[in-house]
Design a binder for these strands. Structure first.
Lengths: 204, 204
DNA sequence: GACGATACCAAGCAAGCGCTTGGTTTGTAA
DNA sequence: TTACAAACCAAGCGCTTGCTTGGTATCGTC
């Protein structure tokens, strides 16, 4: 199951919006703007202009501005969880699985969903309490994938530090790549970066 | 030279504000509020109320709201750079120096200056272009300290991955601790956390 | 070709924002 | 005691914000 097929099935189940639908286009532009200027500095007029409608018309699709932010986050987690599960299913050993996880997360952060992932990291505080709880539930599923593999590596003796701590360190380290890593601008490929991370953990 | 003495000398040189001065108190409250609610969601009325003055009176001390944000960041970097240089000067080997750096950065992120450090990470986009350049200059000095040590370790063969990449990974990993690590809430001490990071790098 | 839903527009409201203004109090030093 | 600057207050201006409202195209369906 490749990434395109995963996306199709999620769209069919109405779990994420097709990128050629009105909703999908809005969410993509919203992710871009939230990433670029921050949620608070992005006005509903900015959002509307980005998809070529009047600001009031936004509220036909979403009840509030915050609902747009939540949708960006929710759909991104759903997509990346599915992609990650698929990436892992091909691997056999825990070492391979970890590499698949790191590679997939780097891809989600620096690839197509990069803008939305950055929003997920930096705009957390702009979510209401209720939305936060909703997003957290989805994130827990995602995190469980990581912890299973890291615990396995710990038991094998390949990992010295605590799995929980390692995952949180990796979350920070990988998220942070969004602030400096430019896959296009030569030098380091995404695979090369994955190698570096694995090397840093002493697992290469 | 302990942390208190460093602070005194910086205050004497007018590089950071004394925490019992009007300016110092405002900056401390600002860091707290910016951290808690974000810069954009914090109003000048919030800031004024936090130090017990009228909102208009703020502008006697700072020309704009953004200048407050900049001051929080600038003073924090100045302080932490000085603390870090002191921490490193005691160490002899590069291994020890790296441990000192990690420990000091964890302290700055999770100790007294924690709120300001979080602001530095999460409110970057709220700075104007001009302020950003100013803060960046200071950060470069700070980063040079790290890169020197990491390059040394690489030459010794103790480090496998690229020093530049490792530093950026560590920046993310250590910054991220602010979102989950609670030194008070039992379990892991700050020294213990430092051990975990060193172990993760395979340098213990 | 009538109908109802969906998608949108044009206009603007109420609230909150950063910041200004003119004037008063407080602290300090000769 | 006087003089003066620094620190602050009370009031509010001009603008932007998220969102609402009442009405109009557009489109698939029978």
């Amino acid at each position: 199951m490749n990434q395109e097929k995963i996306l199709q099935s999620l769209i069919a189940d109405n779990l994420v919006s097709a990128s050629d639908s009105a909703r999908g286009r809005l969410l993509r532009e919203a992710a871009r703007l939230f990433r670029e200027k921050g949620y608070e500095r992005t006005t509903v007029r900015d959002l509307a202009a980005a998809v070529g409608i009047q600001s009031g018309s936004l509220f036909h699709h979403f009840r509030t501005k915050e609902e747009i932010l939540k949708a960006v986050m929710v759909e991104t987690i759903r997509l990346n969880t599915a992609v990650m599960q698929a990436a892992m299913s091909k691997a056999t050993s825990n070492r391979e699985k970890l590499r698949a996880l790191i590679s997939a997360e780097l891809e989600s952060i620096n690839g197509q969903t990069g803008e939305a992932m950055a929003v997920l990291v930096f705009e957390w505080r702009s979510l209401s309490e209720a939305s936060r709880a909703e997003v957290l539930k989805l994130r827990d599923i995602y995190e469980a994938l990581w912890l299973d593999v890291l615990r396995g590596l710990k038991e094998e003796g390949a990992l010295k530090a605590d799995p929980f701590v390692v995952r949180r360190m990796l979350t920070g380290a990988l998220s942070w790549t969004v602030t400096w890593y430019r896959p296009d601008r030569g030098g380091l490929t995404q695979d090369g970066l994955t190698d570096q991370v694995v090397a840093m953990l002493g697992l290469s």
